[in-house]
Amino acid sequence: MFTAAAIAVLVAMALALVRAYAGPTLYDRILAVNVFGTKTVLLIAIVGFLTGRPEFLDIVMVYALMNFITVIGILRFFEYSVSHASANSETIKEQ
């Protein structure tokens, strides 16, 4: 049953990667990376149980911390450097 859950998480990760590749905006990609990170946390935890080595949970914890810091860090980095034109490339009806 751990295998089924691991496969489901892997499929979800693949779909998130498709969204990260397709974009179209910068924020879509950051969101996809965030989702990918959350899935990685789940996958490592499940694999730890699958192989009977719950010590993996320490790595899971570090990864959860890194995932959060990564998103905040990337946002800080891009907050001032994105020009309005490129961020607004998708569609858009006025409100």
Binding site: A5, V9, L15, V35, K39
Partner: peptide, 19 residues
């Protein structure tokens, strides 16, 4: 087991929605 399978289904749902 039920929780793991349901959780896996929700994971896939979330990613399908993302697409």
């Amino acid at each position: 087991w039920a929780l793991l399978v349901l959780g896996g289904f929700l994971c896939v749902s979330g990613s399908v929605g993302l697409l």
